[in-house]
Nucleic acid binder design. Structure first.
Lengths: 160, 160
DNA sequence: GGATACACGTGAGAC
DNA sequence: TGTCTCACGTGTATC
């Protein structure tokens, strides 16, 4: 009530409103795309909606990246050395299972057999009974550039 | 000014404030985790911050998911030890391109094929003589398992 | 007893 | 025209 205090109170309250509006309109609305209505209620509503959308999207992406592995099977193209000529043909049969959704290797796999690789947990499964543990790969990779040791499945001869 | 109008105005304004507060405290703050300060300014600030975080996280996930898998295909060249004994000789030729920094895998590769991987830019180039930065691979391996694109190199036939 | 945060009623601008 | 939205100053509660 006292004028001196009253003036102060007014100023303080004015600052407070200013701060809220600043964050309201400038900061919050700036991170929300497609905001048409600029009144406070709408901004809050859209902000809430947007946050929910983002959270869902993240869950999807995270789930997709981990669980969705089966969908995104990695295709491994196996180029068999040694068999000149005839071998290639025979090779084809075993590896033909290129079921993976993954991007294909461009040109290379034309005449090459493919091996389907699936990720299970931390290990990579390669076709017939081969398993490569990520650890194993990592261990080798960590040693600077590395030749990666992987098991190559051969139809007849099981690598491991 | 008229009392009748004034009353109405009061009611309307009251409703408006109610709606804003509803969305403010109940809706918006409910989707923001770890919200301690419950005053309006803080809620707005944290909301903005949270949205930014989510957006960044999504970008990371999307980038990782897309580039890591499609664009940045990792090619692994598998050198088959040309089947049994004699093969070794033939193998030599194929692997001769192991120009990459490649340390060879120690003992393991005795009967196992070797894979050489090389990273170029954001993509891994395989085949003969390619080099992979361990960093890149490690990064991917660390981020859960990622689809590795691998191809097996054949000696005579250069994959690419 | 000062500082902080809020709800209220009210006047005014925008469409 | 009324309807909507906002900013303002003020009273009040909580720490």
């Amino acid at each position: 009530m006292a004028p001196s205090y009253g003036q102060d109170h007014i100023i303080v309250e004015r600052k407070r409103r200013e701060k809220i509006n600043q964050r309201f309109i400038i900061e919050l609305s700036s991170v929300i795309p497609g905001l048409k209505k600029m009144n406070k209620a709408s901004i809050l509503y859209d902000a809430t909606r947007h946050v929910k959308e983002l959270q869902e999207k993240i869950k999807e992406l995270e789930a997709g990246g981990r669980n969705g592995r089966s969908n995104e099977t990695v295709v491994v193209v196996v180029k068999r050395p040694c068999l000149h000529g005839a071998a290639a043909a025979s090779d084809g049969d075993g590896s033909s299972l290129s079921a993976s959704s993954g991007t294909r290797t461009p040109a290379a796999n034309k005449q090459l057999p493919e091996i389907e690789v699936q990720f299970s947990d931390k290990s990579v499964m390669v076709e017939e009974g081969f398993t490569i543990t990520a650890e194993d790969i990592a261990r080798r990779l960590n040693s600077v550039l590395l030749p990666v040791h992987s098991s190559c499945s051969s139809p007849d001869e099981t690598g491991k």
